Lab assay of single mutants.
Amino acid sequence: MEVRTIKVFTTVDNINLHTQVVDMSMTYGQQFGPTYLDGADVTKIKPHNSHEGKTFYVLPNDDTLRVEAFEYYHTTDPSFLGRYMSALNHTKKWKYPQVNGLTSIKWADNNCYLATALLTLQQIELKFNPPALQDAYYRARAGEAANFCALILAYCNKTVGELGDVRETMSYLFQHANLDSCKRVLNVVCKTCGQQQTTLKGVEAVMYMGTLSYEQFKKGVQIPCTCGKQATKYLVQQESPFVMMSAPPAQYELKHGTFTCASEYTGNYQCGHYKHITSKETLYCIDGALLTKSSEYKGPITDVFYKENSYTTTIK
């Protein structure tokens, strides 16, 4: 009895394709271990004539594949690729409408935090270190965002349907971005203890939790000093293409032309909904596939993004 075979390709990165001759009487799992086709788990399936010449994702289970996976995804987590594939199996079914010149995501599976993050990423200057993220990001900007969303979920250790947080998501993504040249110098002034300067680099240099107003941050924000008295913390120097200011959701007025974009969060910790506000020729609110415009805006804002380049204080 002759062994019926077909020729397929296996890959971990969709760049390096490895030619395989597979036995049609055995499952993919018996031949390769966990195997995925377009995100779908085909591990328990036997090869079919229609699979001839198709590319299958496999887990990096030998040295060659491990090197290829690390170079593309910059992670050695053995569960990463499987999590990416199972997320992709959902995100490829989502709709990605162009809204006001940006790629958004039609609401499904509690994905409003991903839509808000995706919209924000198209408006701030950011370059990702893992080629996987950078490639998928370019495709997302062009309207094909399924891979990018699935990668975000995998890097953030999230599953489809789980509630997510924009600030946490951005923080994970910033860790995989090139923020080497970003720098922030802060000064804390206390009447009792004097003053202390701190220099922050990388992710810490672009994120701040405690106030939404970048102007206020430049002037000074009140913080408790270690001595128990009130101290003032203010920005001395900022070198970065953008800054992200966050605070627990509270009524906040966004003035046209003073910011790049913002995240609105309605609801409580267990259950809520994100919308995205962007400042173009007027203010726009993007909620999944829905767009509304207004000249002014007041609502429960939790993150505001500002364009920056270089700032030095005039406070002496």
Rank of each mutant, 00 (worst) to 15 (best):
V203A: 10
E215I: 06
S181D: 14
S171M: 11
T199A: 09
L118M: 08
V42P: 02
M26S: 08
A142V: 13
Q134E: 11
E253C: 08
D135C: 07
F70L: 12
K7Q: 08
E71I: 07
P47L: 04
R167A: 05
N16L: 07
V243F: 03
N100P: 03
P78S: 08
Y84V: 04
A231S: 06
T27Q: 15
G29V: 06
A289H: 15
S279I: 01
A250R: 10
G257A: 08
S279R: 03
Y297H: 09
R4I: 14
V185H: 05
S181E: 15
T312E: 13
Y306F: 05
I277Q: 07
Q222G: 08
A205E: 01
T169W: 02
V22C: 10
L173T: 01
S25W: 11
E2C: 13
Q230K: 13
E239W: 06
A69D: 08
Q237V: 12
L291T: 14
T19S: 13
W107L: 03
L186G: 05
D109R: 04
H18T: 08
A247E: 02
T313K: 14
S25G: 11
P241F: 02
E68A: 06
Q122D: 03
P130R: 03
G33P: 07
D287I: 03
A117T: 09
P249N: 05
S294I: 15
A142D: 14
Q222P: 12
V58L: 09
G33N: 05
T278N: 06
F32D: 06
K307L: 12
M244K: 00
A40W: 12
P60N: 06
H74M: 14
V304M: 00
S294Q: 14
Y274E: 00
S279E: 01
Q175K: 08
N111W: 02
R184V: 02
T35L: 09
Q175E: 11
A154W: 03
G53W: 10
L37E: 14
T19W: 15
N89R: 13
K95S: 15
P131I: 04
Y113E: 03
A145M: 02
G228C: 01
C271S: 10
H48C: 11
D63A: 10
L186D: 07
K233H: 09
D165N: 13
H74W: 04
E71N: 09
Y96F: 11
V21H: 13
F70T: 09
M26P: 06
G267Q: 08
K46C: 11
T27L: 13
Y113D: 03
S240T: 05
T76V: 13
G257D: 09
V185S: 04
P248L: 14
C227R: 02
Q238H: 00
Y28W: 11
T55L: 07
A142N: 14
P241C: 07
G267W: 08
N110K: 03
S79P: 12
N157G: 09
K280Q: 15
A150H: 04
